[in-house]
Write a protein that binds this DNA or RNA. Sequence first.
DNA 1: GCTGAAATTCTGGAGTG
DNA 2: CACTCCAGAATTTCAGC
Lengths: 163, 163
Amino acid sequence: MVGIDEKDEEILRELRKNGRATLTELGRKIGLSPASIKNRIEKLENLGAIKGYSAIVDPTFLNEFVQAIIEVELLVDNETVDKMLYNISQLDNVVGVYRKTGEFQILIRANFKDVPQLKEFVRNLSAKYLGKNMKRAKVSVIIDAFKENGVVLYKERRSRRRR
Amino acid sequence: MVGIDEKDEEILRELRKNGRATLTELGRKIGLSPASIKNRIEKLENLGAIKGYSAIVDPTFLNEFVQAIIEVELLVDNETVDKMLYNISQLDNVVGVYRKTGEFQILIRANFKDVPQLKEFVRNLSAKYLGKNMKRAKVSVIIDAFKENGVVLYKERRSRRRR
DNA sequence: GCTGAAATTCTGGAGTG
DNA sequence: CACTCCAGAATTTCAGC
């Protein structure tokens, strides 16, 4: 990677684990002054190495009791799909949108209040967004999340069933 | 949700979109003093509503050029699987670990330097972690990420192929 | 949940190697 | 050119209410 050295990588790794780490903290860990850390973070943001920051939130606290994974098989995957996926990405309850290899080309992670809302969402996927291009969708419901975006959610290994 | 009001929900929603928002910013948006925001955030962290904070990092800048989704079908899914999934969650290159409904009960998102590393990982899934309980695995490679952990990655809808 | 003061952190410019 | 130092600004923290 051009223009990226080990210190930059350390910053990226640290921020992935703790996105709210302060410049001073990072400086101590990495061995740079807070001002340098700031310069580097700005550089990393401009380069697109850092896309943004996010808190890992338990969806049930936002009354999102159904967390689903929706895989979509497309008839054709072309540039116009990009725009549709961009539009889907704008939805607040959608957490992740990916294009991938395999039988199902699209994977969407989204949260819902209840199952009817999930059903409505899947209906809208073809009705509003992907149209006839959507061949079929496969829906799974998340039972447990152990790790999310690099953050381990279970602190102990005791058997608990709730997240 | 007990002990959670609308202001708390707003805080959760804001922090999910921008995990590095300052207390002052949040206070302005929500209509509370920075001190109150801080108190509420602490409460939310203690309640487990906020699990952590993370920067959304482009994996290619950390020499993780292969981003994979690995689905695993288990023979039996019982409590001992929890511990194995916990162990898998500890791995640095693993970004997400979920238990879900459907034919494949486990979904793992992980990043790799190259395909041989991915292959090695899948081999280790049965050799080291899940043992004979792993019936089979289905691997997909991520081509494009449009949204990750609530953060939209494509800023415009111009057709770009790189993330 | 507010206020105000103290501590900490952040920021931007000048200077150094 | 990236880093450090330093002073002013902003934020965070903590007390009392």
